[in-house]
């Protein structure tokens, strides 16, 4: 490895000091000079809205459904009680499309019961856990993946995965071509500020707004490139809403 590439090596230390020195010279700050960066930061103007749709006045869950569908996600709302049957139906449909031997990847920590009806829908459909971890090639051959999420953002139609229990490591929801994700109604944040405040930056986060897409050809949006080409969202509403 060249000297430059080794942190702590003399060459690397020289570059570090040179860049930092030039930064300090450019902004006119002496090293270690007194300044209250935190106070300056706290005083920055933030006159923008905390939410563009006030949850007190809008049906945030409905807004999320509408916005996620705008980006060509398939969106369905079902009651929490009907969720296992809905999951079974979606998987059965997908399994039929995938032909014989279709199998689905499942992360550890999915709520018990979510997959309880899968076998009823499609006898013989296989669910594979990720322990030991499935290889990328294996994931490439599965028919899809079923997960929950960390939260969702109504304003932008976004689903956020923090890859905790029930969501799996990042590759699990990336390599398969089909992603079925369940969003509980109480997981929907109105807008970015509330959503970001609810996430732990130490964890890897993936914000997903619709299936993979590209605008690289004539700036025309086309859905379906490297990530899952189908994103199916089941919104589990409160049971009392019937």
């Amino acid at each position: 490895m060249s000297d430059w590439a080794r942190p702590g090596s003399p060459g690397a230390a020289v570059s570090r000091e040179r860049v930092l020195g030039r930064v300090r010279a450019a902004i006119g700050r002496a090293q270690g000079a007194e300044r209250d960066v935190a106070a300056e930061y706290a005083a920055l103007p933030r006159g923008y809205l905390r939410a563009h749709h006030d949850p007190a006045e809008h049906d945030i869950v409905a807004l999320f459904a509408e916005r996620a569908a705008d980006y060509r996600a398939v969106v369905e709302s079902v009651t929490t009680a009907a969720l296992p049957a809905a999951i079974a139906r979606v998987i059965a449909d997908r399994a039929r499309a995938g032909g014989t031997g279709a199998w689905f990847a499942v992360p550890a920590g999915l709520p018990p019961g979510w997959l309880s009806r899968v076998a009823d829908g499609t006898p013989g459909v296989r669910l594979a856990g990720d322990d030991p971890p499935l290889s990328a090639l294996e994931l490439d051959s599965c028919a899809g993946v079923v997960t929950g999420c960390a939260l969702a953002i109504a304003e932008t139609g976004t689903i956020v995965l923090d890859h905790g229990p029930g969501q799996g490591r990042r590759a699990l929801t990336l390599v398969p071509d089909f992603h079925l994700v369940v969003v509980r109604h109480d997981q929907v944040a109105a807008d970015l500020p509330d959503a970001l405040a609810g996430l732990d930056p130490a964890l890897p986060q993936t914000l997903i707004s619709g299936p993979s897409a590209t605008s690289d050809i004539e700036l025309v949006r086309v859905e379906g490139v490297h990530g899952p080409r189908t994103l199916h969202v089941l919104i589990a509403t409160a049971d009392c809403q019937g």
Binding site: A171, L203, P204, S209
Partner: peptide
Amino acid sequence: STAERMNPYISTWTGVRPGDG
């Protein structure tokens, strides 16, 4: 940039995460 409310994917990561990535 793309005139979207949100682009399809945003990834954030902090250092390395054992068993993921």
